[in-house]
Design a protein around this nucleic acid. Structure first.
Lengths: 133, 133
DNA sequence: ACGTATCGACTACGATTGTAAACATGAGCG
DNA sequence: CGCTCATGTTTACAATCGTAGTCGATACGT
């Protein structure tokens, strides 16, 4: 329910947790990867051990967020959901929860809290113009 | 690790969970309120029972997000952290996590996914103009 | 002054998350 | 041909979260 589309029985309803998200980022960046390769990318950064990565990968597979492709004796993991979908969902969640669904409020808040750089402003302006066409 | 103390002004290190956030919203809207009054606001909407609200209030007090003010035989709760702080923090978290800190990317994404209404666009434009002055 | 309704505190308990060890199994090496 | 190494699966366990029941104090009515 409340999904953007009919989600023909494949989209994972399950929420992706924070740690899991880190794994997803790696795989969105490059895939398919083996567990070891994923570990190479995150274990150092997040201070995780191999088993941790394995668990997270398994959970993501369980949640339908990753596909496993048997390659030789090992598995290769690839994202099943698109990054833009995830990002969009999370963004919407935030806007809904914190700003009553008004994206403009988010913008206003970022603006007021000076979280917007000049670059940001410039680019937003540009995007805005483009949309207005 | 010497948490609990407000670094830089009073920000509670502890994250406010989703359910807790609902409580905070009520108190940001109106305060101080007693537990019963808070329940009046959320119990119906979220289907919570009084004990649940009590627990959440306690946890929020424990996290340093709420202040209790003894009024007669009951307590009145007031937010210790400001909504704009919370909202700002959460927004930044999202932007950092998903958009590499670029607020413009968030905007671009919202724009592309058609999550922006005409109203939104109008208001953003207005805000933009105002900032440009 | 005493019982009772309230209210906050403590306790509980299943689910999810973060983190990781133990186990099994198949592949290549000696 | 058996052993070890890599790799996926299972199991584990503490912390947090969502949800709620129970307990003890306490103010109020009578």
């Amino acid at each position: 329910m409340s999904e953007t589309s009919g989600e023909t029985g494949g989209t994972p309803g399950e929420r992706i947790s924070d740690a899991e998200h880190a794994i997803m980022e790696v795989l969105w960046d490059r895939h398919p990867l083996s567990a070891a390769e994923v570990c190479d990318e995150v274990c150092a950064t997040r201070g995780w051990s191999m088993p941790t990565v394995k668990t997270l990968l398994s959970r993501l597979v369980g949640k339908g967020a990753l596909a496993t492709e048997p390659a030789g004796r090992k598995f290769l993991y690839s994202p099943l959901i698109e990054r833009s979908d995830y990002v969009g969902g999370e963004s919407r969640r935030l806007v809904d929860r914190l700003f009553g669904g008004r994206a403009a409020s988010l913008f206003a808040h970022l603006a007021q809290s000076e979280a917007l750089t000049d670059e940001d402003l410039g680019e937003i302006e540009r995007l805005l113009k483009e949309m207005r066409k």
